[in-house]
């Protein structure tokens, strides 16, 4: 489907939350990722907060899969690099001249866990919030709509690239391009794919820009929204608490670093 996105439609409490509440949550995740001191804390946050939220949002499978896909490669490369090169006493095994140390392994895993927490929060936000609603929430709070649109299309560009890639792939196959597995064949595919993809998007950009103008995008009027995003006093309070917690965490981290 063209124009799809990471968003996964479900009816759940998490989906129903105001986008900014989830943004605050994501902010807390980022602060925690930066500030929490060690692996146990980070994992505890993931298992104790993010995972339950994903279950609440009925996104468990998709959430874990996305985490694995995005963070997995980092875990692997970070542990290898750190394990071999960050030094340490406890040698676990040796590969030629290089020693793989336990301290290095721990450092690598900790770094990966920081990523996991930060990206996990972001993924949860994206999977449970239609991006247009997120942008609406931000513009309602004074975020410039032009930037919002750019961000929005940038977020959506990956899936829409994928959809477009599919369409083009179809066309090339229809003209006899064999889509077999095998690295060489995949490489051969690249040009006929990338060509129209890029050309198409460049063309699209000017045509789309025009189409946007035709839809009064640069109208001086104050923008309104078709749908009101549901909000509540409780959510507002929770948002403030989350933001405060995030700020506190960062301050605490800064303070202990200065000590």
């Amino acid at each position: 489907m063209r124009g799809g996105s990471i968003y996964i439609e479900r009816s759940s409490g998490l989906h129903w939350l105001h986008p900014l509440t989830k943004v605050a949550l994501t902010a807390l995740c980022f602060a925690s990722a930066a500030a929490l001191p060690g692996l146990p804390w980070l994992l505890a946050l993931f298992v104790g907060l993010l995972l339950p939220l994903a279950i609440w949002g009925r996104l468990t499978g998709a959430f874990l899969k996305a985490c694995l896909l995005v963070v997995g490669p980092f875990v692997l490369s970070l542990t290898i690099i750190q394990g071999f090169f960050s030094g340490g006493e406890t040698v676990l095994f040796k590969l030629g001249r290089f020693a793989f140390t336990q301290e290095g392994l721990l450092a690598g895993l900790t770094f990966a866990a920081r990523l996991l927490v930060a990206l996990g929060g972001t993924l949860l936000l994206m999977q449970s919030t239609p991006q247009p609603h997120l942008m609406q929430a931000l513009t309602e709070r004074g975020f410039p709509p032009r930037i919002a649109y750019v961000v929005l299309t940038a977020i959506q560009i990956f899936p829409s690239f994928q959809d477009r890639a599919q369409v083009i792939m179809d066309a090339q196959q229809a003209r006899g391009l064999e889509l077999q597995s095998g690295l060489l064949n995949r490489a051969r595919l690249l040009l006929p794919m990338v060509g129209p993809l890029i050309l198409g998007s460049v063309m699209d950009v000017s045509e789309r820009a025009m189409a946007l103008e035709a839809r009064a995008f640069s109208s001086p009027a104050r923008k309104t929204s078709l749908n009101t995003l549901a909000d509540s006093l409780l959510q507002r309070a929770v948002r403030w608490l989350l933001a405060l917690a995030a700020a506190a965490l960062l301050l605490w981290r800064l303070w202990s670093a200065l000590q």
Binding site: R215, A216, A221, R222, K223, S225, T228
Partner: peptide
């Protein structure tokens, strides 16, 4: 387009 024109819901 209507949102951009600032129309009420």
């Amino acid at each position: 387009g209507l949102e951009n024109l600032g129309l009420p819901q």
